[in-house]
């Protein structure tokens, strides 16, 4: 009997130590990614923003994107108005890896034929805006290719990133944010519409609307001094 207890005890110790070693591996990987992201204190970027939401008809816009540590992000349309999803502004990548969290290994996956490590991040702080996030890390380059984020206020959204010449700074050439907008309803009676015979969008479609915003970055100026009044 003693022998059996010892075997169970040893195997449990082995499993636990294996788990902690694995968890440590993932934590150190996330830490490396964080370190890479944190080398950028600020940036100013030029880009093009495309908005595709079924209840919004918005033109493609030339935008300037400003970032400053720790979490200031501003997207400005120099020639007009840009409606920017709050999910992009409120919970950028820097916020994603900010604070204390538990990192859990969730295996590996393929994104555009690139093998990625899947990591789930659970914040330690109960009051954190992000409830759970799953990040897909390109291990050799230490960059996040995709993130699925569940928040308290902004619902669930997905960010996909493509990297190019600014990969060394973990700054993407293109970022695509897909988000859900639930229970959306336009105010009735504010306007009398001209009925031109075009097909109307049904209320059912608007209830579970999904939106997509794409930003294609043309250039970055990294670590330049950006005054606070920009944000």
């Amino acid at each position: 009997m003693d022998m059996m207890y010892k075997t169970i005890l040893l195997s449990n110790i082995f499993l636990l130590s294996a788990f902690f070693t694995f968890a440590q591996d993932v934590s150190s990987l996330v830490q490396k990614v964080r370190t890479k992201i944190e080398q950028v204190n600020s940036y100013e970027a030029d880009g093009t923003m495309k908005t595709n939401v079924n209840f919004l008809k918005v033109p493609q816009a030339k935008v300037k994107i400003y970032f400053k540590k720790p979490d200031k992000l501003k997207i400005k349309n120099e020639n007009g108005i840009s409606l920017v999803p709050k999910s992009i502004l409120g919970t950028g990548l820097n916020n994603l890896l900010k604070g204390n969290f538990t990192a859990l290994d969730a295996g590996s996956d393929l994104i555009n034929n690139t093998k990625v490590r899947v990591v789930k991040l659970i914040p330690v702080d109960d009051n954190a805006e992000i409830v759970l996030s799953t990040i897909y890390i390109d291990e050799p380059h230490l960059v996040i290719l995709k993130a699925k984020i569940t928040t308290k206020e902004s619902g669930t959204y997905e960010i996909e990133m493509n990297y190019g010449k600014y990969m060394d700074y973990a700054l993407p050439d293109k970022i695509t944010c897909t988000f859900s907008i639930k229970n959306y309803k336009l105010p009735k009676g504010v306007t009398l519409d001209y009925d031109d015979g075009s097909k109307k969008r049904s209320d059912e479609n608007l209830k579970d609307a999904r939106g997509k915003v794409e930003i294609i970055y043309d250039s970055y100026s990294v670590n330049k001094n950006i005054p606070d009044n920009v944000f």
Partner: peptide, 30 residues
């Protein structure tokens, strides 16, 4: 029903990517 047609000039077409096509009218024949 047709007197509100002036508003039609403010309705634009959208491209395949969902963005507005500048200078377009959604339903000019209407």
């Amino acid at each position: 029903s047709h007197m509100l047609g002036w508003k039609g000039f403010f309705y634009s077409k959208t491209g395949a990517d969902g963005t507005v096509i500048s200078g377009s009218i959604e339903n000019f024949p209407a």
